[in-house]
């Protein structure tokens, strides 16, 4: 536990991060591909014309909820806190879907895979979407909707 940030989970976060990185390493060294969730989701649903074979993309995407389900079963439940209103989920989801396609990646593709590759493109993308995220939440807080 970090005294100043009592809610933080540094150990679980780091260990979970290692698993995510190992998963991305399996995609890279096993299949020669970036473990970019937005791109694979678009490919699995037929919304992208290039990328991984559809069956490969679909198998990866299917693994995400199954993996979460396994953790939930072994730990007695994974806590999630969602907003009561569907509005932030709808607006946020639309922006995430459109933005990740336009910007060719999300936290996994640009953030985890691209930054560890020292890709200039991904470092810029990650800095921009993190900055936009910080600014958006700050604006929500200033506007009293958080």
């Amino acid at each position: 536990m970090i005294p100043v940030f009592p809610h933080a989970m540094p150990v679980e976060g780091f260990v979970g991060g290692l698993m995510i990185g190992l998963a991305a390493a399996i995609m890279l060294l096993g299949l020669g591909r970036i473990a970019g969730v937005s791109g694979l989701a678009a490919r699995a649903t037929g919304l992208a014309d290039t990328g991984a074979p559809r069956v490969v993309a679909a198998a990866f995407i299917l693994g995400l909820p199954l993996g979460a389900l396994i953790v939930s079963m072994f730990t007695g439940g994974v806590v999630t806190h969602f907003p009561d209103s569907p509005l932030p989920l709808i607006i946020g989801g639309l922006l995430v879907g459109f933005g990740t396609r336009l910007g060719s990646g999300c936290t996994s593709g640009h953030g985890v895979c691209g930054m560890s590759r020292l890709s200039r493109r991904s470092i810029v993308a990650t800095a921009v979407f993190m900055g936009a995220g910080f600014a958006t939440v700050a604006a929500m807080r200033a506007g009293g909707i958080l």
Partner: peptide, 10 residues
């Protein structure tokens, strides 16, 4: 890979 990724996220 997807299973491990989802496990790590959760």
């Amino acid at each position: 890979a997807g299973l491990l990724f989802g496990t790590g996220l959760a």
